Amino acid sequence: MVKLASARETRMYGPGLARNRSEYMNAGLYVFATILLTGGFTAQLSSEPKSGLALLLIGFLILIIVNLHDLIAHLAGINYRLALMEFDIQLGLVEFAVPVVYSLGTILFFLATLFLFIQAENGYGYFKLERHVLSMLIAGPVLWLLGSIHNSCQIYERADGHVQILQESVHIPFLISSVLFLIGAIINSREQIGYVHHGMELVGSSWIWLGIFGSLILFIGALANVIRVFKMQQLDGLRLEKLRGGAQEWLIQIREGQMPLIAEERRKRRPVDVEEGQSSTAPTPYKDVLVGQT
């Protein structure tokens, strides 16, 4: 549901300008999707609640597409080698799990809304779907909340305060909105106990109002994400240090023909290097030589 504010320097959306355009496109689509969600929940208070369901379906569909696109961008960064996740905790816990969890939660929200729309269109002829609708309305926000918690488990080796504020300005609104959606779904489920409701009657006013407030906060987070993407693109060199020792670094070394060194192999090769007269110290940078001479 949320555009992942990754601690990585880049994601592999494509080379050069294509990567920047993809970032802006994803951020813009999230803003548009949150507007549709706000309008969809608000329209359910009108005389034509089915129009609100249609807006919600479109908004959820856009969120699914963008999250899957974000997931593909992360996997492309490691050439889709899922085995590298065992060497990179953040890659598995955040950059892979978060888009997957958000996508699953959004799919459940989409299906629940679709079932409500089908009942409204067909005169409430699908009574067996009602209990599944209430369950999915709770399961969807639970997955969103789980994804928001995972999204906060990012590792920063070194980053200035400005960049971290930009990151948290995206995390916090989406976490709050997930909580509101979950509270609304639980209250709505409790209100249905002891009553036989069908179609649009399955969602009460509490779910709608909390959905409106949650969507508005989600819209604020989406705007913050646009600002974050713009600022990160405009920075002269990102002030968010690239994570060292992760899966992407291993893959870059493989591409350059330098296999990642294992500690045991390094210990085995060190005596050989000493015998051959090779120095184990790194070469002095040219800039340091000039400073020393001065």
Rank of each mutant, 00 (worst) to 15 (best):
L61N: 13
V31G: 08
A247Y: 05
D236P: 06
A76Q: 11
L218T: 12
F87C: 12
T34R: 07
E48M: 10
F181S: 00
V289T: 15
L93V: 15
A83L: 13
G214M: 03
S47C: 03
F181N: 00
L68D: 07
I72F: 15
G92F: 07
G123E: 04
L143Y: 02
I155P: 02
L145Q: 05
S47F: 01
F213R: 04
G140K: 07
G246P: 11
F219G: 05
L137T: 04
L4W: 06
Y102P: 03
C153Q: 09
K287R: 13
L75V: 06
R267L: 12
L251T: 09
T294I: 14
P271G: 15
G204S: 09
S215P: 02
F213V: 11
R158P: 06
R131F: 15
P173S: 03
I176S: 02
R267P: 02
G292W: 14
E9I: 15
F32C: 08
L93D: 08
Q164H: 09
P283R: 09
A5R: 01
S22D: 12
D160Q: 10
Q233I: 03
R8C: 02
F110Y: 12
P283I: 10
I64L: 06
I176K: 04
G237Y: 05
I62A: 04
M232D: 06
Q248A: 06
R19P: 00
G16A: 08
L145D: 00
M232V: 07
F32K: 04
I107Y: 07
Y156H: 11
A159F: 07
F219R: 03
L56T: 03
G292T: 15
Q44F: 00
Q164S: 12
I183Q: 02
P271Y: 11
L82G: 11
K128N: 13
V142A: 09
L91Q: 12
F219K: 07
V66W: 04
A185D: 05
A54W: 08
V274P: 08
Y286T: 13
P271L: 14
G105E: 01
L175I: 00
Q234M: 14
N122D: 13
G59Q: 02
N79V: 03
A222F: 01
E168I: 14
K128T: 15
K268W: 10
R255W: 14
L223I: 14
H197R: 11
L36H: 00
R190I: 10
